[in-house]
Design a binder for these strands. Structure first.
Lengths: 213, 213
DNA sequence: AACATAAGTTACTCAAAAGTAGAATTCCGG
DNA sequence: CCGGAATTCTACTTTTGAGTAACTTATGTT
C-alpha cells in the first residue's frame, strides 16, 4: 500500500503490475517466434498459446487482437535495431569501420525472432495507421544507415555514388538473412555473416593492393 | 479433322486447345500479379477473377486450387530465371563480366510479377512435395550462380573466399528488390539496380587504382 | 438444326482460425 | 477464511474466403 492521497481502494500492487508486464512480454516473445517462423497468416494463436501452456483467450487478456501482437512484435524489433545496432562503435577508426560494426550488429538483430519477423513480415499486413507508424520508424532507421554511409563518404573511407541507394542495398542484402531456413544444416551463421559483410565492403572485383579488414 | 487412326470421335480441335492454354496463361498472369502484390494468404481468388472479368469458379476450370496456382506461378518464375537470366553473355570478356550480366538479367526478372512472387512467397506455403520440387529448382539456380562466381574466381576476375556464401549473398541482395514497395516514388528502378550491382562489384571501400565497369 | 462438349455462372457449403461470453479459479488484503 | 478483483478456462459465435454442385450458355461438328 503506497501513495499519499485518499488512494482509491483498488490499486494494483506493483508486483502484480510487474508480473503482468512480464507475462505480456512472454506472450510477445512467443508470438514473435511463431510469426518469424510462419509469417503472419500461417501463424496461429492457438499455437502461440500452446507454447505458453495456456489457452487462446488468455492471449486476448494481454493483447487486443492478433494484429496488435504483430504490431508490438515489429515495433519491438525495430526498437532493437535502433538501440542495439545504433550504439557508438568503440574501436572504429573511420566511417567504414563504424558502418561495418553497425552492419554486424544489425545482422545479429535479424537473427533474433523479433528481428526476423520485423524483416520478413510486410507492414501491409497491418491497418493503415499502424502501417504508417511502422514505416515512419523504418525510414528513420534507413536515414541512420544512410548517414553512416555519407559519413564514411565524407572521410574518404567509403566510395559510392549514392548513399541513399547504397543504404537500400545494404539493408536489403542483410535482410535476406531473415529468410534463410532456420538452422540451415552446414552453414555456420557467424562465418556467413562475416563473409557477407566482407563482400559488401570489398566487392567482387579483386583489389590490387591493400587487403581490407 | 486430323489424326491418322480411327481417332475417337471427340477430340479437341487444336485451336480449342490453344485457346484454352492461352486462357490458362492469362489466369496465371493475373494470379501472379495478385500474389506478387499481396502475398499468398492476402491474395483472394475473387480478385484474380475480377481482374479477368470472370467469376471465381471459372478459375477452377483451369487450376485445381489456389495452391496449384501458386505452384505454377513460382515454377514459371523460376523458369524465367533459368531461361532468361542464364543465357550466354555476348560481349562479356571474363567471369566477372559474365556474372554482372547475369545479375542484371536476374534483377530484371525479379521486377516482373512472376519474379516478385517467386522471390517473395515462401515455398513453405506449398505442400511438402511441391515445396520439395521448388527447392530443388532453386538449388539448381543457386548452383548455377555459384558456378559463375567460381569461374570468375578461376580466371582471376573475381576475388572472394567462398563462392557458396557469395552466391547466397548476391541472390539475397538482389532478391530484396522484390520487396520494394511497387513504384516507389522517386527511385528509378534501372538506375537503382545498376547502383546496386556497382556496389556488389566494387564494394564500399574505395579502390586505389582502376575504376571498374 | 441437333447435339455433344466446352466454358462459365449462380448460389451455395465447408473449414479454419479469429474472436467473445461468461463461468471457474486463483490470489491477495483484510 | 472471506470478498472482490485478476486471471484463466470452457464452450461457443463469427467471419472469411476457398472450394463445389448443378444449372446455363456458347461453340463447333455432322
Amino acid at each position: 500500500m503506497r501513495g499519499g492521497v485518499i488512494s482509491s481502494p483498488w490499486k494494483k500492487s506493483p508486483e502484480r503490475k510487474q508480473e503482468r508486464a512480464l507475462k505480456r512480454e512472454a506472450v510477445l516473445a512467443a508470438a514473435a517466434h511463431v510469426f518469424a517462423e510462419n509469417g503472419y497468416h500461417r501463424a496461429s494463436l492457438d499455437e502461440v498459446a500452446r507454447i505458453l501452456n495456456v489457452t487462446k483467450p488468455t492471449l486476448y487478456y494481454y493483447f487486443k487482437n492478433k494484429e496488435a501482437m504483430l504490431f508490438a512484435c515489429i515495433e519491438h524489433g525495430l526498437e532493437m535495431f535502433r538501440s542495439e545496432a545504433s550504439g557508438p562503435s568503440a574501436k572504429a577508426k573511420n566511417g567504414l569501420q563504424r558502418l561495418t560494426a553497425y552492419l554486424k550488429r544489425y545482422a545479429a538483430v535479424i537473427e533474433s525472432d523479433f528481428g526476423r519477423c520485423t524483416v520478413r513480415i510486410s507492414d501491409s499486413e497491418l491497418s493503415e495507421p499502424s502501417s504508417r507508424k511502422i514505416r515512419r520508424i523504418k525510414s528513420e532507421i534507413d536515414r541512420e544507415l544512410r548517414q553512416l554511409v555519407a559519413d564514411g563518404q565524407a572521410d574518404g573511407s567509403i566510395a559510392v555514388t549514392d548513399p541513399q541507394i547504397t543504404a537500400l542495398a545494404l539493408a536489403g542484402a542483410l535482410n535476406s538473412i531473415a529468410f534463410w531456413r532456420h538452422q540451415d544444416p552446414d552453414l555456420p551463421v557467424d562465418k556467413t555473416v562475416d563473409e557477407y559483410i566482407h563482400l559488401l565492403v570489398n566487392g567482387l572485383a579483386p583489389r590490387t593492393s591493400q587487403a581490407r579488414k
